[in-house]
Design a protein around this nucleic acid. Sequence first.
DNA 1: CTGAAAGCGCTTACAG
DNA 2: CTGAAAGCGCTTACAG
Lengths: 353, 353
Amino acid sequence: MVSLKDIAKQAGVSVCAVSLVLNGKYKNRVSDTTAEHIRETAASLHYEPNMLARTLKTNKSHTLGFVTDEIITTPFAVRIMLGAQEAARKLGYILISMNTNNDKSLERQEIATLKRYHADGFLYAFMYHRVVDVPSALRSMPTVVVDAEDANHDLPSIYPDEFGIGYDATNRLIKAGCRRIAYFGSESGIIAQPQRLAGYRKALHDAGMNDDPQLIVRATEHQNADERAVDLLKVAAPDGVFCFNDVRASSIYAAANELGMTIGKDISIVSVDNLPNITDALRPGLTTIELPHYEMGFEAVCQLVAMIEQRDKPDIKPDQMFRSSFDTDDTFTTMHGSIIERDSVQHAAHGNE
Amino acid sequence: MVSLKDIAKQAGVSVCAVSLVLNGKYKNRVSDTTAEHIRETAASLHYEPNMLARTLKTNKSHTLGFVTDEIITTPFAVRIMLGAQEAARKLGYILISMNTNNDKSLERQEIATLKRYHADGFLYAFMYHRVVDVPSALRSMPTVVVDAEDANHDLPSIYPDEFGIGYDATNRLIKAGCRRIAYFGSESGIIAQPQRLAGYRKALHDAGMNDDPQLIVRATEHQNADERAVDLLKVAAPDGVFCFNDVRASSIYAAANELGMTIGKDISIVSVDNLPNITDALRPGLTTIELPHYEMGFEAVCQLVAMIEQRDKPDIKPDQMFRSSFDTDDTFTTMHGSIIERDSVQHAAHGNE
DNA sequence: CTGAAAGCGCTTACAG
DNA sequence: CTGAAAGCGCTTACAG
């Protein structure tokens, strides 16, 4: 490794002159000609600054801890990390990620490790939208909560606009001409469930339609979803179904098949997630709303770096197009999803809008 | 942050005594009683060592760079990272991962960043098994190639035993009593394709069956797989199909449905990948072979740390059960997959064996 | 405009 | 058995 000292010796100047020039702080301190000379020597020696030495002195590591429950075991939520990585790179930070696997004692240990490595701040991220207690070890540090809401309503939190998702999905079906729209929801206490349902209701009411209790069915993902889907289609005879997620949509597909109904013709379906492997497996293609994971990760790092550096939120854009929009108040940021059009909706209009 | 100096002052000893004791190197250098006293003061002050300062001095960062093409955008391959993280944690290392997104210039930049942060070694990992040119910036460092083979046949490389997978899958169908077993493969040049095919052929021959060219069909994942699946079932009339992967299996499912065949009865299916979202969506459940991603990541870190510390491969085991077995020679390690039994095979035996 | 010096928190010969 | 000192590579007052 070539060090400042090597450059100083080679260029015939002092170490501090080199440091100043390479950090661009040499105005009125080093002449332009020596500055140029120093820059050339550094380049010719292929100098790379040693981040660790710098951190030791400045107490800023340009390292972000990414602590997550089991995000990286979950296909779609991984995109939070991708978005966070991209923003970090653009802002001169690196990300160190740790999986807690929902083990609180492992979590404590990992946060301690991250602190030993001098992380400047933390992302506390989750596999799906929920309300969380943030560990006290994180409260003393700059921290942003991702795909979750801080129970104390204190730390900045970024999560999807579930109401908007329910509203948009239902409207998509209304626009397709559906008159009896069902909601095939989740039975678990997951926060998205009541909020998407509320969005569904609002869309129906705005369109002057009643919400028939028969049309609202909740199911458990892996246990009774298939049967309940059949029941729903038989008993309530909907012409459109807003599904809580793609996995439940696959139950509706199976039910429609069983009952001899043609999807996209006899019945229209819109769901949430856009899981590649489900949408690959379903025929016809499933129209679904993608959650803004990538965008949440990106936005979270922007907010976090603003906290760390105590400056305004950096104005950077991801290379990958933002598909979602924002709603920001002081601490909580909600983000819309974006609809991916395929063929499960009658007369489906193609393209996003 | 409390430092060695703080402890030394509080305990009334020198900084070096504290360092020695806390690193367990104090035999014949510090008395047991002062050692104990030092340990107590350190604990009471909640001392956490500063890794950066240590690294600066020792030139060992206990940090591993994890450079990957787009692994973390891909559901299943993410498990490489999980396995690597677990092994790293057990060995006192942390992982810094970077996604190159297959952009060579980004890759160079990221490797440079990782070196600035003083990574002790590198994992060079891929989304699916292939032969790769390892960048020269990595050749000068301890590096292990994961889910890929170093084209120079020089760096340690860890990848799945594709032949064994084809052999096992086909044998599973033979065991179920299938007599006309098809192979529904990939049209791409992917390395797994010919190797799994070879395993399939070997299994057939070992069972005294011929490989009928009609029974071997290759297809492109998203373009013609559905049609070719129908053709295969119609023309060759197999009673069992070994599918290259779960996505192709879903095409066979669709074809069987279309032709009125009952899966698990008229026709048995075994594939590769065990993608949760596909297997969730398919009825009946798909019997499939899971690739040893977790295990490859774990093993890779073990080999890498052995190189870095110039010692024998550490003897650690993952918390999560190893489901796969190893085959190691000097530089190349192949790993078997493990079959996940569901209901797509006639008379399916349950449980792993 | 430039250099010498101190110090970030550690480890490790070296001298007693 | 113990301490004083040097040094890892950097940054930043301070003095000229």
